[in-house]
């Protein structure tokens, strides 16, 4: 599921020459009555066709930010434009250009998938003649083509979420907002959902704005912003963010760990730590170092594991805490072996 080497061509969606950026936020603040500052000065530009990850712990201002971008909440200060339309002065235009997938299900479970999509088509006044083909297209994109006339209440959690994505795409939005789209799904359903999001990108070239606190999912984004306490604390491509951390971790299992540690220090100038499970050392380009290590150490080397820095490390670095300490998914899955 994880790809650490990304094709550089798609790493950053170039700001499109034709037309305004998909999302542009300028000095956005949101203060709730009672003085709670949910968002404190947010500047953000997301290019057309980009997959943008918006990361942060619960209560950091993610949902408020999305609500403001979707015209559901008014910023206390600042300005947001979606595809060039101001959310405050032209909310109707903004709504026609965005699709939404919320944390909670917003489907009618007593209607069929087809009826839910048609309901949406009528709400957005899609040309009638185009609706049946469009329903086919979006259901196909999320792999629900054969469930068109089934009741939503018979769907699994993952299928419902995918149907919501299909519905959000019905009116061909410029930006599809996904607020924690994989929350509460099992790993298989999460992987499925991301696979389908990839399909969506290829077929629709929709800008995807995704909030998540699963960092392994954020790896698949072109760019990421990390928000904490209502402010963006870091932004860039996953690779850029991880390069700030700089070093890979190399774990070695050898015949004589203390001797290996000495060798690392004397021959390679690396400081290592010896633990119960072998020797650990940090280095800038772990993969290239491995052959030299194996050749240069006098002790037998049984195994070498190189771990690239994970977004979890990045998050910890910028915010001083883990994104979701209690959640096993964020501690076990992100940043598998390179």
């Amino acid at each position: 599921m994880l790809r650490t080497r990304r094709s550089p061509g798609r790493a950053v969606a170039p700001p499109s020459a034709d037309g305004p950026p998909a999302i542009h936020a300028d000095g956005v603040r949101k203060t709730y009555p009672g003085g709670v500052e949910a968002v404190r000065g947010l500047d953000l530009t997301v290019g057309q066709g980009e997959m943008f990850g918006f990361l942060g712990p619960n209560g950091c201002g993610k949902t408020t930010t999305i609500a403001m971008m979707c015209t559901l909440a008014r910023p206390t200060a600042g300005r947001i434009a979606i595809a060039g339309h101001d959310t405050r002065t032209a909310p109707g235009l903004v709504r026609r250009h965005i699709g939404l997938v919320f944390q909670e299900s917003t489907l009618d479970h007593d209607l069929t998938a087809d009826e839910n999509l048609r309901f949406h088509a009528d709400l957005y006044a899609l040309p009638r003649a185009a609706v049946p083909a469009r329903v086919d297209a979006v259901l196909g994109l999320v792999g629900l083509g054969d469930r068109r006339h089934h009741y939503v209440r018979t769907f699994s959690g993952g299928m419902r979420r995918r149907l919501e994505i299909a519905r959000g795409l019905m009116h061909g939005p410029r930006v599809l907002f996904l607020d924690e789209p994989t929350l509460g799904l099992d790993p298989q359903a999460r992987a499925d959902l991301w696979r389908h999001l990839g399909e969506v990108r290829r077929a629709e070239s929709t800008t995807l704005f995704v909030t998540t606190h699963y960092l392994d999912e954020a790896e698949q984004c072109d760019r990421i912003a990390i928000i904490d306490h209502g402010r963006i604390v870091a932004r860039g491509t996953p690779a850029e963010l991880k390069s700030v951390i700089g070093t890979d971790r190399i774990d070695l299992r050898t015949g004589d760990d203390p001797a290996a540690a000495r060798g690392l220090r004397d021959r390679f100038g690396l400081t290592s730590t010896v633990g119960d499970h072998g020797v650990t050392v940090r280095a800038a380009d772990g993969a290239r170092l491995v052959p030299r290590l194996c050749a240069g150490l006098d002790v037998p080397v049984f195994s070498v594991t190189v771990t690239r820095p994970t977004l979890d490390d990045v998050f910890l670095h910028h915010t001083g805490h883990r994104i979701r300490p209690a959640d096993p998914a964020s501690t076990t899955t992100p940043g598998g072996p390179a």
């Binding site: 083909a133 086919d136 979006v138 061909g172 629709e204 070239s205």
Partner: peptide, 30 residues
Amino acid sequence: TGTAPVAATPGRGPAAGTTARPPGPAAGPG
């Protein structure tokens, strides 16, 4: 994988240089 035909949607995919207008029917003008 859903490879259903994207009906009546010319220029699918984020091909370089093409406009980024997503395919699919646009929402009506209200």
